[in-house]
Design a protein around this nucleic acid. Structure first.
Length: 906
RNA sequence: GGACGCUUAGCUCAGUUGGUUAGAGCACGGCAUUCACAUUGCCGGGGUCGCAGGUUCAAGUCCUGCAGCGUCCACCA
């Protein structure tokens, strides 16, 4: 055992251990049916991404779970990987390309994908490498990328399977079109944002009644050339007589009908709606019902096309202004007033999406009832549970999923169309993993799949699943996985879809599923939703605000363990997290204190056998154990269970705070301090050191999932593990087991010891307080007077006198019958007073005590009122009643004691 | 428009099924540096638990309403 330096140096420790862990294959998972399986699949980061604070939190949580599982002897697999991130990557690569003056079309599909793949290979693993700095214990040998050959096969096979089962279809529908990325998007990729614009009030002239007009409002006058009708509510008395007549379209003039449709809100605007079936979802539906033509007036890139008449060739927002101008000129614009409404934005390109009619592939979600049941009945358990409702709401209102993307980077849809034939006729399609034999007569679909249509297979594909019913040892062993940790922002995009994919695709085809089948098919049993990390002001972290700290800098500054501890200590259950560096600093400080506690142990005496709890316990002499030993061991047993339960319930705040509380308050502030004198005594020294060893060994084991580096380092420095042994293989066990080990060597934990220690702590605290208030805090030779409350208290103080004197800084404690004449504190053990022999500021002390008495009097009044209330005494349960009576008696005694002291001050 | 969540000390948050004087960390003020740790220790001040009702012997905790904040969902042009 080498000497421990004064300050913990994370950098060298972290590098050393991470390298060793990797070299000795600590994170490698193997199928071992003699063990309980435990698996977590990492939420695959985008290859375009960089590590941000959210990743830190999310991956720390996963690492905690997986390391704890490893300690518990489970066969723990944490599988890492990355996502090809279709739109994001393609956008990035195209941007790079543009710098050289080229577009993807200059390269062609194949060459472009090669360039994109090179870019991915260069940048894709950066995040994963950064995660290693955090200590992430992934099985790196099992890394999966969504475009890997095996995974891709699973993705394409899924398309084929769902097509064959009738869940995938092609159709011309209204989709969310991104005019920048030039692709359709799913509803989930559209972000609604309030946007400022104008509400244009216009008039359309009625053809059959020249000079008569119908008033219409719109925020999008540029779509007027696409108007195919004007719609009114069938029951609207104002317009009933006009139904069936026609109006004159004011831009790109034409006569269009007035139709009646119940989708129109009578009370909104004028109650008449312009119907543009090719540019609005509601209008599309109305158009369908009335067989209206779909007049598409816009090019895919958002520029108006020839059908837009005078607007042709103008970009959509400029066209809007131009349209308003034209209306004004023709006298048909009645008003343009500022207006704010919700507009859908493309999540990636951050521009308003355009509802656009196009041919796309859609998924009709299978197994929706089963997916609802899986979560509702807790087969998939959400933490915190309140996300259940959000999930259920989405499933209950589920819409078909547009899965085709007009991109090149991704899984190309495995469909071939017969040349020069109707693509909508299934007979002209070849849907298969293999191209048709006479491929020269076919054309493959250009579109690729939505990235989520590959990542929804994550838990299956990463384990080698490649078709329904497929099985292999990994899949059989680790599926369903144990837990998923992710953000609630992708509950629909990813979590819900993974559940659906598992239910439909794992196992043989089934129309409906029993609960047992659901249990076997779900991708994970638990989902932990971590909060979103915000800055100290509560703003989202973003590049443009520059309010996101650089994770690697934080690690360099505070150490990975400090960062992990700090983050977890502020990660409330699923609520947003306000990040502040102070917390990370606290984490760092905590690690340093842990370090020094170990250092203190090492400096205090020779190391004993620390190889197991039993070995340490054997070094404890039960006869030498006093109340403090019993108390700290009792708290240790308790903390083992608190930690175990907290982790089992994904309660990370309780996990960190119970460690903090035990280590700071019970171990350092009290136990180490009180045992300093006993440590000097050869008779009790070995026992005290063994108790310390047991506490430290157990504490390190409990902390290991959270602070892997320092716990491993100290575990070795203290001799708890030898060369080639790792803390990850040592199970902290349960409190009962620890108590059993102690019982075996003759230590029956005394519950009264905890109470006695608590009383002594209050006594010491009170004595320190009166010293501090009288500027004697630093004096070591204060004189105290103590009037014990009863015989037992007197004995307790007497038997702990040396400790007390040392902790308080007192030269002597005189046992008296009445402690008075000086500043005093009333403690559970009795009254302790400071002997100031004449130099008391009687007035100040009286004032302080009077304030105390005032508080106590209030309390007494309310207690008495309560106890004299017959309703209370007759209805409250006995233990509450007794408690209230005791409290009253004690409060009165305390008040009287204070009054007596005041009197004694003259 | 609907749903969910939040509102407790200056700040960030704990507060199990209602039950004995509402807690912690940070920040703040005072004191301390021979004896593990100043990345430390000791002591202290600081809260009518968002507002208004209700249920109950008893409400931070349960119910109703209101207000403010946040998030998600939603085809009012």
């Amino acid at each position: 055992m080498s000497e421990i330096p004064k300050t913990y140096d994370p950098a060298s420790v972290e590098t050393k251990w991470y390298d060793r862990w990797l070299a000795s294959g600590c994170f490698k998972a193997a199928v071992d049916t003699s063990k309980e399986p435990f698996a977590i699949m990492i939420p695959p980061p985008n290859v375009t991404g960089v590590l941000h604070m959210g990743h830190l939190l999310n991956n720390t949580i996963q690492d905690i779970l997986i390391r704890r599982a490893r300690q518990e002897g489970k066969s723990a697999l944490w599988l890492p990987g990355t996502d090809h991130a279709g739109i994001a990557t393609q956008t990035r690569v195209e941007r790079e390309l543009r710098k050289t003056g080229k577009t993807r079309h200059d390269l062609g599909r194949e060459k472009f994908n090669e360039v994109a793949a090179e870019w991915r290979d260069k940048h894709g693993d950066i995040i994963l490498n950064q995660l290693q700095k955090l200590g992430a214990s992934c099985d790196w040998s099992r890394k999966v990328h969504t475009l890997d050959a095996g995974y891709s096969k699973a993705v394409l096979q899924t398309f084929v399977t769902l097509y064959e089962r009738g869940y995938i279809f092609r159709g011309k529908r209204m989709v969310n079109w991104c005019p920048v990325s030039l692709t359709g998007l799913s509803d989930e990729e559209v972000i609604m944002k309030p946007s400022k614009g104008f509400m244009y009030r216009m008039r359309y002239e009625i053809v059959e009644r020249p000079g008569e007009y119908i008033e219409i409002s719109t925020t999008r006058p540029e779509t007027i050339p696409g108007d195919a009708a004007v719609a009114v509510h069938p029951d609207d008395e104002r317009y009933k007589h006009l139904i069936g007549l026609h109006v004159r379209r004011p831009i790109a003039p034409a006569n269009i009908p007035i139709v009646a449709d119940r989708a129109v809100e009578k009370d909104f605007g004028s109650g008449a709606l312009k119907v543009t079936p090719a540019h609005d979802r509601t209008d599309f539906d109305i158009g369908q019902r009335h067989k209206l033509p779909q007049i598409d007036v816009m090019r895919p890139d958002g520029v108006m096309n020839d059908l837009a008449g005078p607007l042709a060739g103008i970009e959509r927002f400029k066209a809007r202004a131009k349209a308003a101008e034209l209306l004004k000129e023709s006298g048909n614009l009645l008003e343009a007033k500022p207006y704010e409404n919700n507009v859908g934005f493309s999540e990636r390109a951050d521009v308003p999406i355009e509802p656009r009619l196009s041919e796309q592939w859609f998924v009709k979600y299978p197994k929706v009832p089963e997916a609802l049941r899986a979560v509702e009945s807790g087969m998939v358990k959400f933490h915190p549970e309140r996300w259940n409702k959000v999930y259920a709401h989405w499933l209950n209102n589920i819409q078909d999923w547009c899965i085709s993307r007009q991109l090149w980077w991704g899984h190309r849809i495995p469909v071939w169309y017969r040349k020069n034939a109707d693509r909508n006729d299934p007979a002209n399609r070849h849907v298969s993993l293999e191209a048709p034999a006479d491929v020269e007569n076919w054309i493959q679909e250009d579109d690729v799949l939505d990235t989520w249509a590959s990542s929804w297979l994550w838990c299956l594909g990463t384990l080698g699943w490649d078709k329904p019913g497929s099985t292999n040892p990994e899949l059989k062993f680790w599926y369903p996985t144990s837990a998923l940790a992710t953000g609630p922002d992708i509950i629909f995009l990813w979590v819900a879809r993974m559940i659906i994919a598992g239910l439909e695709l794992h196992g043989e085809e089934k129309k409906t599923l029993t609960d047992d089948e659901i249990r076997a098919r779900i991708p994970f049993k638990n989902v932990y939703f971590n909060g979103i990390i915000r800055d100290a002001q509560g703003r989202k972290m973003s590049k443009s605000l520059g309010n996101s700290p650089e994770p690697l800098d934080l690690i360099a500054k505070f150490g990975a363990d400090g960062l992990r501890f700090g983050l977890l200590s502020i990660a409330p259950k699923g609520a947003d997290i306000l990040f502040s560096e102070d917390r990370v600093e606290q984490g760092r400080n905590f690690c340093n204190k842990l370090w020094n506690a170990a250092r203190f142990r090492q400096m205090s005496g020779p190391a004993g056998d620390c190889s197991s709890d039993a070995a340490i316990a054997a070094r404890i002499n039960p006869a030498q154990c006093d109340a403090d030993d019993h108390a700290i061991l009792g708290r240790l047993v308790e903390t083992v269970d608190t930690v175990g339960n907290a982790l089992a319930e994904f309660d990370f705040v309780t996990y960190t705070s119970s460690l903090f509380e035990f280590f700071r308050t019970d171990y350092c502030d009290w136990y180490l301090e009180v045992s300093k004198s006993r440590q000097q005594d050869p008779a009790s020294r070995d026992t005290v050191l063994a108790v310390q060893d047991l506490c430290l060994r157990k504490l390190l084991q409990l902390m290991h999932p959270l602070t892997p580096f320092i716990s491993e380092e100290l575990f070795h420095l203290l001799g708890c593990a030898g060369e080639g042994e790792y803390i990850q293989n040592s199970n902290p066990g349960e409190g009962e087991a620890l108590a059993g080990v102690l019982a075996k060597v003759g230590i029956a934990l005394d519950p009264a010891a905890v109470a006695a220690t608590a009383a002594l702590r209050e006594f010491v605290s009170g004595a320190r307080a009166i010293k501090s208030q009288n500027n004697q805090a630093t004096k070591r030779d204060s004189k105290l007077k103590f009037a014990a409350r009863d015989e037992a208290s007197r004995t307790l103080v007497e038997s702990n006198l040396e400790k007390i004197k040392k902790l308080v800084g007192a030269a002597e404690v005189a046992f008296v019958t009445e402690a008075s004449g000086g500043p005093a504190a009333v403690t559970p053990l009795g009254t302790v007073a400071l002997d100031l022999t004449g130099s008391v500021d009687a007035a100040a002390e009286k004032a302080r005590l009077s304030k105390e008495i005032e508080k106590l009097d209030k309390l007494i009044a309310s207690s008495e009122a309560k106890l004299s209330n017959e309703a209370f005494t007759s209805k409250a349960p006995p233990h509450i009643l007794e408690g209230a009576r005791n409290q009253l008696a004690e409060t009165k005694a305390k008040r009287d004691e204070f009054a007596r002291i005041i009197a004694s001050l003259g």
